[in-house]
Structure formats: structure tokens, C-alpha cells
Design a protein around this nucleic acid. Structure first.
Lengths: 341, 341
DNA sequence: AACGTTACCGCAAACGTTTGCAATTCATAA
DNA sequence: TTATGAATTGCAAACGTTTGCGGTAACGTT
């Protein structure tokens, strides 16, 4: 009943009349050790239910096989799919994952970085909190362990960054609307120049230009908080215009859903009068009626590639800074909110 | 630029011409140490940016201050809110969290338990995977570290369990429907006798009995997979009955949303003809039109109390088995799907 | 017979920390 | 003066593992 006693190398050694080092080497398949000895050791180890004390091991090797993950909000759906991918890939590669939240609070973010490095993680995966200004703190930890950024990234931090092809994805989404015959396409984006918002806006502009459609500042709307409520609010503004748009591209699903709710309320026909396209393919996008056309971001793939790149850096450390940006391809999921009836 | 060098006690000691042990004790505020010495040590520690090597520490004390968390699916919304609560409370209490997924796969679940104990976690928080039959494996790890179960629990495992008051919550939900004047209330539940489904069904029955309403087997429907699709499917069956129910209580939001989708399709007026109540207060429940009346499960509270009870057991180990069941109160969130117009 | 080689194994140090105990100093009481 | 005790500090062991290096035995080679 002795709660928690783990057999040690020493006990195995005593039992077999061998030295600790021989036992250790046998278990690690060191070539110096006789085959039958190895068998004996391994057999006994299994019988005595031996498992190495990972803390002793990583204490000695200064390698923890732990990856720290810092995200703004764990219960954000897209984030949780990324985490899923991270967990899967990490498990395959024999790493464990420690997670913490920054709650979009920069102070807390740097605090988390500190406890992570103090804890001895081999590397850090991070999605930046909303308003990250003091990049210095991040740089300081980057100086101690490798970091890979994903989703919410910043070019000011010299490390590899895994993002989706925001610009191209937005381009495709808007082009899809154009191909439906829409030509007065509003956009709902963020006021603040976040990386994601900027890129998506750029894609929007490029699509319009590429198809020779005039860019109308009036229907380019911004909001601080890109949420359902403000999506609805801005859509109400669009509806009050003398000349309404014939499509709305919202740079998040939630804003798009807010738009749909506003349109539904005023019995505007979707997509005939106004089509709507969102961004994220969140679970909500299949719940709203009509179901939302949106950009699918493969969260698990982002997670898995982030892990791959990080482990690559962990296991093959180089002195020169790496500033690769990897773009993950997205696909447009066409649903009723943009389907020609 | 030396990536990762951490100052050690030894270096502090040499710098101050003190012994390592004195430095250690000074930093830990041991009463034996002279006040001014303490100050000197602490000052230098700060200046040299010292932080203890947690691995060496936990290697020695056999205490890791890490809690392992095993959940079926991290990207399930309710789960992620629980995780949020776990993270918050753990951080307050100075513990770190390692997360892994069982993917509702029992073999993987026991594998995860093993790597967690091998890793040396101080305790484990777990929500059981769907069809957990071999409780033996869990009992074996329970024999090594304390475990606290939450959400998906099992009475076969003698440990403290944190659940919501499923039965009472269901009772309240159904009573709410009765008070609206509904008396032919269907239920959509799980075929399999999961803990949650059973409890919610019991609450349903009690509410009907308590209000003297006849229980009609015909409108008690079950499904293996309690999802949107099957919620819709079963609702179609309900609609095809000669005498339709006047309300539907689905034991998950997704099934309830499926029900609403079916009702919307056939233009059944909600809630006038048929009211709908779900369970979970998932994000989706505010997206669907009409918005869904549902039981709010305070995920973060479940997470926080789970951590509290676990740490209590970790820090005050007792030899006798604890089988306390803690029930977290829920509240009914009334929305359009049951609001009298 | 002397030496080199091979195959196998053990000794002991090291990682950074905590802690029981011993050692030292100094002041105070006997 | 000596013994006693309190206040500080240091020594060294211990936690479990890995690993460089050295050792031993057996065997083959000259």
C-alpha cells in the first residue's frame, strides 16, 4: 500500500549483483553490454515495474523534454484546435506540454515566460497576447530558449513564425464573393493594426483591385473589439446607408455571425440581397442560420508544424537567428450564407 | 549571448564567500541565518538574476508541483472552460499543469495515466473517457498518486469527484417548462447509461412526478451519439407523431440545437408550439435562432474546486480512501427557445 | 612467454538543491 | 576561569541518473 515508491536503478543492481552503471547502460541498449545481461536486466525491470525517474534524468541532462505553451485564451475554439495539434505532435516526438494563459495581458505573458524558463522548458510555443508592445521581455527569454510563434505573431521577434496565409485566404474569400456577382463588398475589420487584421484587409484590397472593382471607403468599417455585438452594430450601419452593400466580408466568424443576426432581424435575404463570409470556420459557423461561408483554418496543422519547427531548433541548436515565416494553407468552406439559391 | 546559463547557489556562495548551505537557507528564510547575511544574499541573488533550478529541487524533494490533467477532448468548449479554471487556481497555488488528451480512447487514457505518474506529477485531475470499463488501470495509478475526477466520473473509483448537480439542474429545467404550461415534455437522452445522462434523466422524471404529470414512454428518446445530427433525427421522429410533444428537453446543447434546426425546417413555432431546453450553455446556444434556454455549467468553478480538493489531498495525505462527491450548483439561463412571446 | 585486443563491466564524479549535524564564535552565567 | 548556551555558519550526504575512464578476464597473436 506504500503510496508512491518507485524502484530505482540501485535496487535493480542489487537484485542482479550488477553495478548501477551496467544496469543503466543495459536499459539504454548501450553496445558495451552483453546481450544476455541486457535481457536479464530488462526482464527484472519489467517485473519490478521499474520506470526511470524523469526528474533525475532531466536534472542531469539539463533536458526536460517539456515544451511550454503560452496562449491568450485556452477556451477560444481556434486556439483549442491548435492545442490539440500541439498535443498530438508533441506526444509522437516524446515531449510533454505545459500550458498557461496570458489572458491577453502583457504583464502576465512575460510572467508566464519567466516561470516557464525557470521551470526549464526546452522551448516555448507562443501566441502573442493582443497588445504586445514590450517585445524586450520576449527577446530576453528568446535569448535563453528557442521560441516559435504561431497565429498571433510579430515580425519584431526574430524567430520562426507559423501563421496561416491570411492575405491569400482573404483574397480567396473576397474573390468568391466577386465570382458570385457581388461588387459592393463591405469589410468589417479591426481598428487596431493587428497582424491578422492587416493581412486580411490587404487580401480584400488585392482581390478588389485584381478584379477591377472600385474601393469604397464608406463600406470599409473598423471596430476595436471584433465581436458578435460589434459585427451586428456595424451591419446596422451598413443597412442604414442609402446604397447598401451586396456582400459583407467580416474578418472573424463572430463578427460575421453578428452581421447575419442583424440581417435576419431586418429580414434581409442572405445571400440574395447580401452575402456574408466569415473567417475561422468556428463551430458557430455551422449553427447560425443560414450557415456561414468561412475560411477554414487548420488549427491542428498549425499546432503540429509549430511543434515540428520548435523541436528541430531544440535538437539542432544553431547560433544564428532564424526568422522563417511558415504559412499554412487554408480553404474556403462555402455554405448557405454565400450560396446562390 | 550564452544561451541558457543559470546562476547556481554555488556561484552565489563563491561570490559572497559563504557556503552553499548558508546561501540556500538565506534564500529560504531559514531562522538560523543572520538578518544582514540574508539581505546580502538576497540582494546578490537578485542582481545575478538567480532562480532556483526547479528540477534539482523537485528531484530532491520528490515533489514536482505539477498536476497532470487528462481530458477526453481539449477542444470541447465545456472542457476548455474547466481547463481555464484549473489553470487559474493552479497558478494561484503555485502548481503547474500538464495536459493530455485521451480522445475518448480507454487504452490511451491509461497510457496517459502511466506517463503522468512516470513523469512524477503530484496528482491527477481527470475526466473519464466515454466508455471507461477497465477501472483497474485507474485504481492502480490511484494507488500511487491522488486523483480527483471531474465532469465524467465513476462511482467505481474511490476518490473525490467534482460534478455539477445534474439531477437538480435537469429538474429545474423541466420544471421551468412545466411552469410555462407545457405538459407533454419529450426528452432526448443517451442510450448508454453514462453518469450524466442517467442523472439528468432522473431529474426529468422527478420533475414530472412532482408536478403530477404522466410519464409517456413514447416521447422518451435515446441515442448512442448525443449530437446535433441525432438531435435533429429524433426531433423529426417526434414531429411525425400523431400527437406531438409541446416541449423538448435535450440533455446536451448540441442535441437541442439539432432539435431547433429540425423545428425551424418545418416552421414549427418555438416556443409556442414546441419549446426547447438544452444543457451546457455552450457558445452555440447564443448563436442559434431562437437562442436556446439551457443549463449553465460553471466550468471554471468546476476546474477551480477540482484543483482545490486535489491539492488538499496532495499536501495532507491520509491513508483512508476519500470518496466525497462535490456537486457544483448550476443555473438555468432562460432564452427565446422557451420564452413565452 | 609476453603482449595486444576484445568484450564486458564497475568506480566515481557530476548535475543543483536541501538538511541533519557538527563546528565555530561570542556572550553570559556559575 | 570554566561551563553553558545561543547564534551563526559550514561540512557532507543524499536524491537517481548518466557517462568518462579505468579495470579485469579471456582469448588470440607473435
Amino acid at each position: 500500500m506504500s503510496k508512491r515508491h518507485n524502484t530505482t536503478l540501485k535496487e535493480l543492481a542489487k537484485e542482479l549483483n550488477l553495478s548501477i552503471s551496467t544496469v543503466s547502460r543495459a536499459l539504454n541498449d548501450h553496445p558495451d553490454i552483453n546481450a544476455t545481461t541486457k535481457q536479464n536486466v530488462k526482464d527484472l525491470a519489467r517485473r519490478m515495474n521499474y520506470s526511470p525517474n524523469l526528474f533525475a534524468r532531466s536534472f542531469r541532462s539539463q533536458k526536460t523534454n517539456i515544451i511550454g505553451v503560452v496562449v491568450p485564451n485556452i477556451s477560444h475554439y481556434f486556439t483549442s484546435t491548435i492545442l490539440k495539434g500541439i498535443l498530438e505532435e508533441a506526444e509522437i516526438q516524446g515531449y510533454r506540454i505545459i500550458i498557461s494563459e496570458s489572458n491577453n495581458n502583457e504583464a502576465k505573458q512575460t510572467e508566464m515566460l519567466n516561470t516557464m524558463t525557470q521551470f526549464g522548458v526546452d522551448g516555448i510555443l507562443m501566441s502573442l497576447s493582443r497588445r504586445t508592445t514590450k517585445v524586450d521581455d520576449v527577446l530576453q527569454t528568446l535569448n535563453r530558449v528557442p521560441i516559435v510563434l504561431f497565429d498571433k505573431v510579430s515580425q519584431k521577434i526574430p524567430c520562426t513564425q507559423i501563421v496561416i496565409d491570411e492575405e491569400q485566404a482573404a483574397f480567396n474569400a473576397v474573390e468568391h464573393l466577386i465570382e458570385l456577382g457581388k461588387e459592393r463588398i463591405a469589410i468589417i475589420k479591426e481598428t487596431e493594426n493587428s497582424y491578422n487584421s492587416e493581412k486580411r484587409y490587404a487580401g480584400y484590397l488585392r482581390a478588389l483591385e485584381h478584379h477591377g472593382i472600385k474601393i469604397r471607403q464608406k463600406i470599409i468599417l473598423s471596430t476595436e473589439d471584433i465581436s458578435l455585438i460589434h459585427g451586428r452594430r456595424l451591419t446596422n450601419i451598413l443597412l442604414s446607408m442609402k446604397k447598401r452593400p451586396d456582400a459583407i466580408f467580416a474578418i472573424t466568424d463572430n463578427a460575421a455571425i453578428g452581421a447575419i443576426k442583424a440581417l435576419n432581424k431586418f429580414k434581409v435575404k442572405i445571400p440574395e440581397e447580401i452575402a456574408v463570409v466569415g473567417f475561422s470556420n468556428s463551430a458557430n459557423s455551422k449553427i447560425i442560420q443560414p450557415e456561414l461561408t468561412t475560411v477554414d483554418q487548420p488549427g491542428d496543422k498549425i499546432g503540429r508544424t509549430s511543434v515540428k519547427y520548435l523541436i528541430e531548433e531544440i535538437e539542432n541548436p544553431s547560433n544564428d537567428v532564424i526568422t522563417k515565416t511558415v504559412e499554412i494553407k487554408t480553404t474556403l468552406v462555402v455554405r448557405d450564407s454565400s450560396l446562390r439559391a
